[in-house]
Design a protein around this nucleic acid. Structure first.
Length: 355
DNA sequence: ATATGTGTTGAA
DNA sequence: TCAACACATATG
């Protein structure tokens, strides 16, 4: 509060903050150069270190929780934000724009909440938070095409409740058009796909004649296990199948934009649950192809993921990830590379090569 | 020897 | 809760 108390401080300096003259504090050229005061930070939860770096800390239950030291002041502020949102939830006061107001941050929120506070703090102190988050994201996004072991995902805290165990098959995808995300509040389902994959229900019990479809409410689960309910119906006027009621809410919440691809899936089990997922969108050149199928295999009693390569050159190929674009992880080309995503305890990423 | 993180305090 | 500040302790 102290630093907030200055009227100029905005809780969400999405805009540049005015930089107070911190240097001045140093130049209090006292008789002894020893008596320098440390420059205070304009960020909440950030404290100066004697060596010019910045510490981040948050308080809980009268106790200080140290979040580590950072080269940059805003890095420390960011660390504080992460901790604050994990410790205090959506309405935590943060230095920068809170995740709750950022489109597409659902995965990060899920990631955060699926780790204990101390795990998050650990990551911050070791500066591994971002990496772990990326791993987790890619993990989820690569899921689904084939029978991925969702139990494993659950262990990693990647999946929320109901979406755990079902493997799913892709029904079809659609690149949403401007009108799909515009004010018409409807999504057109390509006719072929609709007739092939979505349930049909004629209100008219009479046999053939009138193919009049009564609206149908369908539930779809998203990447996070969140359930969306849409009205699915047929518009005679345009001879098209559409999702109507509930659709605009989805568009808004997800921040869905024209050109993005949404993928409809269905669980392969008896349940036949429906899923709607926004396909990972990466503009970078390295992710041009759709995610490659991934399969779980078990070696030495450890579950790993095998990415189906092409040449079958005895090795497991890496995902279509080069150096840049989507992620930066370290990758190996040949041999089996397994990264046991943060093993339960050590949080260390292990790379094991076989043969 | 230096960097990091804790003990502690006063203020909000 | 929070940051300031002194300083003990960890680290290389």
């Amino acid at each position: 509060m102290s630093n907030c108390s200055t009227a100029s401080f905005s809780p969400n300096p999405a805009v540049k903050l005015p930089a107070p003259e911190r240097m001045v504090l140093y130049s209090e050229s006292g008789p002894e150069m020893e008596s320098r005061k440390l420059p205070s930070s304009r960020y909440k939860g950030v404290v100066p270190q004697p060596n010019g770096r910045w510490g981040a800390q948050i308080y809980e239950k009268h106790l200080r929780v140290w979040l580590g030291t950072f080269d940059e002041e805003d890095e420390a502020a960011w660390a504080y934000d992460v901790a604050a949102q994990r410790f205090r939830g959506r309405d935590a006061v943060t230095n920068f724009k809170p995740l709750s107001e950022i489109n597409g941050s659902e995965l990060e929120v899920a990631f955060m909440n699926s780790h204990s506070k101390s795990e998050i703090v650990d990551m911050l102190r070791k500066h591994t938070y971002k990496d772990e988050l990326e791993e987790n994201k890619n993990f989820i996004l690569a899921r689904g095409e084939e029978g991925t072991n969702c139990k494993r995902l659950e262990e990693f805290g990647c999946l929320s409740h109901s979406s755990k165990l079902a493997s799913r098959e892709v029904l079809f995808e659609k690149t949403v058009t401007p009108s799909d995300v515009g004010k018409l509040n409807r999504l057109v389902i390509p006719k072929q796909d609709a007739e092939r994959h979505f349930p049909t229900q004629k209100s008219d019990s009479g046999s053939a004649a009138t193919a009049k479809y009564k609206g149908l409410l369908l539930n779809f689960e998203d990447e996070l296990g969140r359930v969306w309910r849409f009205r699915y119906s047929y518009w005679n006027s345009s001879q098209s199948y559409v999702l109507t009621k509930g659709w605009s809410h989805f568009v808004k919440e997800k921040g869905l934009k024209a050109g993005e691809v949404i993928c409809f899936k269905r669980s392969t089990g008896p349940e036949k649950k429906l899923y709607i997922e926004r396909r990972p969108r990466c503009n970078g050149p390295s992710w041009s192809a759709p995610a490659q199928p991934v399969q779980l295999i078990r070696i030495f009693g450890v579950d790993i993921f095998k990415v189906h390569g092409n040449g079958g050159s005895g090795g497991v190929d890496t995902p279509s990830v080069g150096g840049g674009g989507c992620r930066k992880g370290k990758r190996v080309n040949r041999d089996v590379e397994m990264n046991l995503l943060s093993m339960k305890r050590g949080k260390k990423r292990m790379v094991i090569r076989t043969l």
